[in-house]
C-alpha cells in the first residue's frame, strides 16, 4: 500500500482497524513496564525523595502536550495548503487528547509543586504558557463545535492553530528567557541529559508508553471523526429525501 493511499478515508479506516489491537497491546505492555519501573524499579531522588516519581507522568504529559499541538499545526498546513481529506480530521481528533495531556501536566505539576516548592501554583512563565496551551486546546475544540460545516470549521481552526504555534517556543524556552521557578531543561540539552540513568531510564520508558497511548487514541479518534462525517453526509441525504417537493433548502446549509 502506497502512503498516498492513506489519503483515502476508507482505506485509512481499514488500516486503523488492523493496527489498533496491536497498538493497544503494545501500549498496555509498555505502560505496565513504565509503572513498574516508576514504583519499584527506580530510586528516590536525593533531594526530592519519592516525589520524583510524579515526574514519570508529568514530563511525558508535558512533552506530548507540545507534540500533539505541533502535530495539529502540521495538519493545519495540510488543511489550508493541500486540503488533504484527513488533515482536518487528524487535527480535530488530536485536540481533546492534547487537552487531556496538558491538563495532566498542569495537575501533576501542581501536585509536585505543593510539597517541593511550597505552592500549588505560581504565575511563572512556564506554568502560565502551559495554561495558555490548555486554553488554546479548549478554544479550538469549542470552535470546531460552534461551526456546523466541518470544512469551514476545519479551515477556521487551522488558521487559529497556526497562530497558536507561537506559544510552543515560548513554552519550550520560557525557562531560559525568563527567571522562572520551574527548572530548566534536563533531558533535551546540547550537552546531554543531567539526570542519572537510574531515573532517566524509567522516564524514557514512560515517555514511550505515553507516546504509544497517544498514537492509539489519536488513530481511534480519527476513525470516529471519519464515521461522524459519514453520518452527517447521510443525514443530509435523508433530510433532502424527506423534504417536500418544491421546498427550498435553508440558506447556508
Amino acid at each position: 500500500m502506497a502512503l498516498t493511499d492513506l489519503a483515502n478515508p476508507t482505506r485509512f479506516i481499514a488500516l486503523v482497524a488492523r493496527a489498533l489491537p496491536w497498538l493497544a497491546a503494545a501500549t498496555a505492555i509498555v505502560m505496565a513496564i513504565a509503572f513498574y519501573l516508576a514504583f519499584f524499579g527506580s530510586p528516590a531522588d536525593y533531594q526530592q525523595g519519592s516525589t520524583v516519581r510524579i515526574m514519570y507522568v508529568h514530563v511525558p504529559s508535558a512533552w506530548l502536550s507540545l507534540f500533539c499541538y505541533a502535530l495539529m499545526a502540521a495538519a493545519s498546513i495540510g488543511t489550508l495548503v493541500w486540503r488533504h481529506p484527513l488533515a482536518d480530521v487528524s487535527a480535530k481528533a488530536a485536540a481533546p487528547i492534547g487537552a487531556a495531556f496538558t491538563f495532566i501536566c498542569l495537575a501533576t505539576g501542581s501536585l509536585w509543586g505543593r510539597p517541593m516548592w511550597g505552592t500549588w501554583w505560581i504565575w511563572d512563565a512556564r506554568l502560565t504558557s502551559q495554561l495558555i496551551l490548555l486554553l488554546m486546546y479548549l478554544g479550538l475544540m469549542a470552535l470546531w463545535r460552534a461551526v456546523d460545516d466541518p470544512g469551514r470549521a476545519g479551515r477556521a481552526a487551522a488558521v487559529l492553530t497556526l497562530v497558536g504555534t507561537i506559544n510552543l517556543p515560548i513554552i519550550k524556552f520560557s525557562v531560559d528567557w525568563w527567571n522562572t521557578l520551574h527548572q530548566p531543561a534536563s533531558v533535551f540539552r546540547l550537552d546531554g541529559p543531567t539526570i542519572h540513568p537510574s531515573i532517566l531510564t524509567p522516564l524514557l520508558v514512560a515517555a514511550i508508553a505515553f507516546t504509544l497511548l497517544f498514537v492509539t487514541l489519536h488513530l481511534a479518534a480519527m476513525r470516529n471523526e471519519i464515521l461522524r462525517r459519514r453520518v452527517r453526509a447521510m443525514q443530509m441525504v435523508a433530510a433532502q429525501r424527506e423534504m417536500p417537493t418544491g421546498a427550498a433548502p435553508v440558506p447556508g446549509e
Binding site: 509503572f35 514504583f39 528516590a44 525523595g49 519519592s50 516525589t51 516519581r53 510524579i54 507522568v57 508529568h58 495532566i104 495537575a107 501533576t108 501536585l111 509536585w112 505543593r114 510539597p115
Partner: peptide, 16 residues
C-alpha cells in the same frame, strides 16, 4: 515509598 511524607501527592498524581 510508604514511609515518604508525600505519598498522597504521588498517588494523587497517578490517579489524576
Amino acid at each position: 515509598f510508604g514511609s515518604d511524607p508525600h505519598t498522597g501527592f504521588i498517588l494523587a498524581s497517578y490517579a489524576v
